[in-house]
């Protein structure tokens, strides 16, 4: 009798895991994924619109900067985290929220690598270049165009000045955190005839690297490899100081 009981228990457990597996497949169309030990690399995904001061309607996919900023602080503060990978597939969004994220990422002491997948448009450009090293997928694009204002606009020359200054902040950030020349970036920004009904340029993967905007063409494999390399360098430098 006593010998039989554990067997029964096992069977019950088996059934339980099996039914939860079936439930998972029914819910999501996929089975469970394996678990792994603690990772020294953390990942920050910036998807959809970068949401700033105004909450967007729920049908929009957004990345809220108030969610990301504490995460960036936590990454900096936690000694177990040695590197950060930033995944970008964004259509742009709030200029100030985007610049805030870019500045936070640029001021991290830990190595960061960004990958632009699909699209890293408008304010996605400063976020992409804020990393220590940036990658772009060959098929990904980045739209560079002048910034714009929505909502109430007062028709005075000062409005233009304000907009121009805002744009200057974006240009300054991008040119100081990437290898692109200010002249070239402005040229791409104000180009005519590339975008239908708009001013600007849609820069594709390899071109972004050619212009010096992004450091390399690649995907996850290259990004992880580079990040590990940067982490090793960082560790060695730390040792030398000590």
């Amino acid at each position: 009798m006593a010998d039989k009981d554990p067997g029964k228990q096992d069977q019950n457990d088996d059934q339980k895991t099996q039914s939860s597996l079936v439930q998972k497949i029914q819910q999501l169309g996929q089975s469970s994924v394996p678990t792994a030990p603690d990772s020294n690399i953390h990942v920050l995904s910036i998807i959809g619109q970068v949401e700033g001061h105004v909450q967007l309607p729920p049908q929009n996919k957004t990345t809220k900067y108030e969610h990301l900023i504490p995460q960036i602080v936590a990454v900096e503060q936690n000694p177990k985290i040695e590197g950060l990978i930033i995944i970008l597939n964004t259509v742009g969004g709030d200029v100030e929220a985007g610049l805030a994220l870019s500045e936070m990422l640029a001021s991290l002491s830990k190595p960061t690598v960004s990958i632009v997948l699909g699209g890293g448009h408008s304010i996605g450009v400063p976020i992409a270049v804020s990393a220590s090293y940036s990658y772009i997928a060959p098929s990904a694009t980045m739209t560079i165009h002048p910034i714009r204002l929505t909502g109430l606009v007062i028709g005075v020359p000062q409005t233009f000045e304000y907009l121009d200054k805002m744009q200057e902040r974006v240009i300054q950030f991008v040119t100081s955190h990437s290898n692109i020349e200010e002249k070239k970036f402005k040229e791409l920004m104000f180009e005519k005839g590339n975008l239908t009904r708009d001013i600007g340029t849609n820069v594709i993967g390899t071109d972004a690297v050619k212009y010096g905007l992004i450091d390399g063409v690649g995907g996850v494999k290259e990004a992880i490899k580079k990040l590990n390399e940067l982490i090793d360098n960082n560790k060695q430098e730390g040792k030398m100081i000590q």
Binding site: L28, T35, H67
Partner: peptide, 17 residues
Amino acid sequence: LSTDPNDYLDNSFTPGE
């Protein structure tokens, strides 16, 4: 909303749950 890649492997946080 997490930066830990392992959290994404945890079944209890899978979208749709």
